[in-house]
C-alpha cells in the first residue's frame, strides 16, 4: 500500500473553489437586485428602505457581503503574495486586511439590522 504524503498547506484548492462559489453568489445577487431596481417605476428613499426591511432581503444581503469579504480576502492575499516580498511587511498587510474585513462584517450587521 502506497502511503503518499502530499506536501503543502492544502488551502489552495479550497480557496480556489471558495473564490468561485462566492463569485457565483455575488453574481446572482447583483443581477437579481439590478433587475428589481430597473423594474421600479420611481425610485426613492421609501422604495430603498422597503426593499431592505424584510428579513429575507437582509439575510441574502448579508450572504452577499460575507461572500464579498471572503472573495476579497482571497484576491488581496494573492496580490500581496505576488508583489510584496519582505515577509514582515507581507504579514503586516495580511493582518491589517483580515482585521479590516472583520470590522466590515460587524459594520454590515449594524447597517442591515439597523443596530
Amino acid at each position: 500500500m502506497v502511503n503518499r504524503v502530499v506536501t503543502g498547506a492544502h488551502y489552495g484548492l479550497r480557496d480556489w473553489l471558495a473564490q468561485r462559489v462566492t463569485a457565483a453568489v455575488m453574481a446572482v445577487y447583483v443581477l437579481a437586485l439590478a433587475v428589481y431596481l430597473l423594474m421600479q417605476p420611481g425610485f426613492g428613499y421609501d422604495t430603498w428602505v422597503y426593499l431592505f426591511s424584510g428579513n429575507v432581503m437582509r439575510t441574502f444581503s448579508m450572504l452577499f457581503l460575507l461572500s464579498l469579504f471572503y472573495h476579497a480576502w482571497i484576491g488581496v492575499r494573492d496580490i500581496v503574495m505576488d508583489y510584496v516580498k519582505p515577509a514582515g511587511i507581507r504579514l503586516l498587510i495580511h493582518v491589517l486586511v483580515i482585521l479590516a474585513l472583520i470590522l466590515y462584517v460587524i459594520w454590515s450587521v449594524q447597517i442591515l439590522w439597523g443596530l
Binding site: 476579497a72 484576491g75 488581496v76
Partner: peptide, 11 residues
C-alpha cells in the same frame, strides 16, 4: 486584478 484592488480599497 487592478479593478479588484480598486474595489477592495473602496469597500
Amino acid at each position: 486584478r487592478l479593478s479588484g484592488a480598486m474595489l477592495f480599497i473602496a469597500l
